[in-house]
Amino acid sequence: MVVEIEQLTDHNKQAVIEQVVEIERDAFGEGALNYWGLVQMLHYGLVYVIYVNGTPAGLIYYMREMTKADSAYLYSLVIADGYRNRGLGSQLLDYSLAKVEKYGIKKVELTVAPGHKQAIYLYQNKFGFKKKEFRKNEYGPGEDRVILEVDL
């Protein structure tokens, strides 16, 4: 298995963009970033894609926080169904955190569903994220989120 990670910057890579949008849609449904949103994220945020044998297997997006220039928001981390539980999420998060730090980012924040124990374990136990707060109905009724953050 050959694993590669790259920063996606070219909005003309239509096939790759369509594949990662599909991964996002499969994972998050209505809450997924669509094609147009992803293109804007390429221009104004950071997007990293992890490939397995040349096929996109996951992605991670970051946005810089406008009111705190040294902070970023991890918008999404998702690994495609057929590639989960192989350590790819850890590889992608480790790689991307090192990259965002080079942009002067000192703190990264994210939201996660309180019931998503696997993601919470990854963030807290493997990468040192700490619980900052709990937001009831963050994305609408019944869509609570735990806010986690890490100092880089």
Rank of each mutant, 00 (worst) to 15 (best):
K107W: 10
E149S: 09
F134S: 09
A27W: 13
K131E: 14
K107P: 05
V150Q: 09
I50T: 12
L122R: 10
Y61P: 00
E133I: 01
A15T: 12
Y139S: 03
Q7I: 03
K68Q: 11
N12P: 00
A15F: 01
A119D: 13
D151F: 13
I17L: 14
M1H: 03
Q40D: 09
G31F: 13
L93Y: 11
V21Q: 10
Q91V: 06
W36L: 10
V47N: 01
V78I: 12
R84C: 04
K107L: 07
N34A: 05
Y44G: 00
P141H: 15
I17S: 00
E109N: 05
Y35L: 09
Y95C: 06
V49K: 05
E109D: 06
K136H: 14
G89T: 07
N125K: 15
Q91N: 08
M1E: 06
L88W: 03
G29Q: 09
G142T: 13
Q7H: 02
E109P: 00
K107Q: 14
D10W: 00
L97R: 13
K99Q: 15
A69Q: 08
I60K: 12
L74S: 06
P114C: 00
Y51K: 14
Y121D: 11
W36R: 07
T9H: 00
K132C: 04
L46P: 00
T67P: 00
Y103R: 15
V21H: 07
D144W: 04
G89N: 05
Y123D: 06
K117G: 05
Y35A: 01
I105C: 08
P56R: 09
G87E: 02
S90M: 01
L42A: 04
K102Q: 15
L97W: 14
G29C: 02
A98Y: 02
N53R: 09
T67F: 03
A32H: 07
P114S: 01
G142K: 14
V20E: 02
V39G: 00
A32V: 09
G29W: 03
L46Q: 13
V150D: 01
L92D: 10
E138F: 14
V16C: 01
Y95H: 15
L8D: 02
H43M: 04
Q14R: 09
V52F: 03
L77S: 04
G82C: 05
K126L: 12
H116T: 01
N12E: 12
F134W: 05
F129P: 12
E22Y: 06
R145Y: 03
E133S: 15
G31A: 12
L38D: 01
Y83D: 08
M41V: 04
E138Q: 10
V49F: 01
D26G: 02
F127A: 02
A113Y: 11
N125A: 07
A69G: 03
F129V: 08
M63L: 15
F134E: 07
F28M: 06
Y62P: 13
L8W: 00
Y75K: 11
Q19T: 10
K117N: 10
E133L: 09
V100E: 12
Q124E: 14
E65W: 04
A15V: 10
S71N: 12
A113C: 01
A32F: 04
H116L: 05
S71W: 13
A119T: 11
L92N: 12
V100P: 15
V100Q: 14
I50R: 10
G58P: 12
I105E: 08
M66Q: 11
F28N: 03
L59C: 04
Q91I: 06
M1K: 07
L88T: 08
E143S: 09
N125S: 11
K13N: 06
G37F: 02
E109M: 13
